[in-house]
Computed example of a mutant assay.
Amino acid sequence: MAAFHDMEELFQGLLSTNHAAAQQRWLLGCYRQMMEQLLEAQDGAEQQLQEILKTEKDVAQCLLDAKEQACQEVAELQQIEAKLQKASEKDTHLKASLLQVTRELEDLKEIAADLEKREKEVDEDTTVTIPAAMYVAQLYHRISKIAWDYECEPGMIKGIHCGPSIAQPIHLDST
């Protein structure tokens, strides 16, 4: 501003002389040039300021987007950690169940082995002998009180029931 004031005083002094008119035109040209340069510099500064503001706005939006994405990823990570925790608990439960079932299986194997051992002991102790057919026929006659006729035709069954009161004949045709 001091330069403008000095120029104005010089400008006033030059007006008084003829030579001053030429210098005044020259100074006016310099003043106009200086003002044009000032306006150009001001326009350039405004343009740079607008570019800086736009860049700041883009960077701020980029930061907001990155922050939002980070929040989403944190939420997703928390969900994954919760799923992992549930899976870990389920795994622990399944391992405990497997251990219990394995113990039960071992107990059942021991019981089965014990049963096999006892079965062999029982088989060794009890031997079943099949009595002769005559003994069976006599035993059956004593129990049922039927006297069978073994000499009848094939396909026929004959016998006499000797019950407590009356003997009754039995005739059956198997054909």
Score class of each variant (00 low, 15 high):
Thr129Arg: 08
Met1His: 03
Gly155Arg: 02
Gly159Leu: 00
Arg32Asp: 11
His5Cys: 02
Glu46Phe: 05
Ala112Gln: 09
Thr55Cys: 04
Ala60Asn: 12
Gln85Tyr: 02
Ala2Val: 06
Ile111Trp: 02
Gln48His: 14
Asn18Gly: 10
Trp26Ser: 15
Ala75Tyr: 01
Ala75Glu: 09
Glu110Leu: 09
His5Ser: 11
Leu28Ile: 13
Ile143His: 04
Glu121Ile: 02
Ala66Lys: 07
Leu99Gly: 03
Ile166Lys: 08
Val122Phe: 11
Ile160Asn: 00
Gln78Leu: 11
Glu46Gln: 13
Glu89Thr: 11
Glu76Gly: 10
Leu10Lys: 03
Gln61Pro: 02
Thr126Arg: 10
Gln69Glu: 05
Ser97Leu: 15
Leu98Arg: 12
Asp91Gln: 15
Ser174Met: 15
Ala60Glu: 12
Ala82Leu: 14
Ala21Ile: 14
Ile130Thr: 09
Pro169Asp: 05
Gln85Ile: 05
Glu119Met: 13
Cys62Thr: 11
Ala22Asp: 14
Gln168Tyr: 09
Thr175Gly: 08
Lys86Asn: 14
Trp148Asn: 00
Val101Leu: 15
Ala60Val: 03
Leu99Trp: 02
Arg25Met: 15
Val128Ser: 03
Arg25Cys: 15
Lys83Leu: 12
Lys67Ser: 06
Met7Pro: 01
Gln168Thr: 12
Lys117Ile: 06
Glu46Arg: 13
Lys83Gly: 05
Leu115Asp: 04
Gln100Pro: 00
Ala60Trp: 00
Leu63Met: 07
Ala132Tyr: 02
Ala137Arg: 07
Glu73Trp: 09
Gln12Leu: 09
Lys90Trp: 06
Met34His: 15
Ala20Thr: 06
Gln79Leu: 12
Tyr135Asp: 15
Leu99Pro: 00
Ala20His: 09
Leu39Gly: 10
Leu53Gln: 13
Ile157Gln: 02
His93Ile: 13
Ala132Arg: 07
Cys162Trp: 07
Gln100Trp: 05
Lys117Tyr: 08
Ile80Arg: 11
Gln42Pro: 00
Lys90Met: 14
Asp123His: 07
Leu115Ile: 08
Tyr135Ser: 10
Leu38Tyr: 14
Asp173Pro: 00
Glu40Gln: 15
Ile166Pro: 00
Lys54Glu: 13
Lys67Ala: 02
Ile130Ala: 04
Gly163Gln: 02
Leu105Lys: 14
Gln61Asp: 14
Asp58Gly: 01
Leu28His: 06
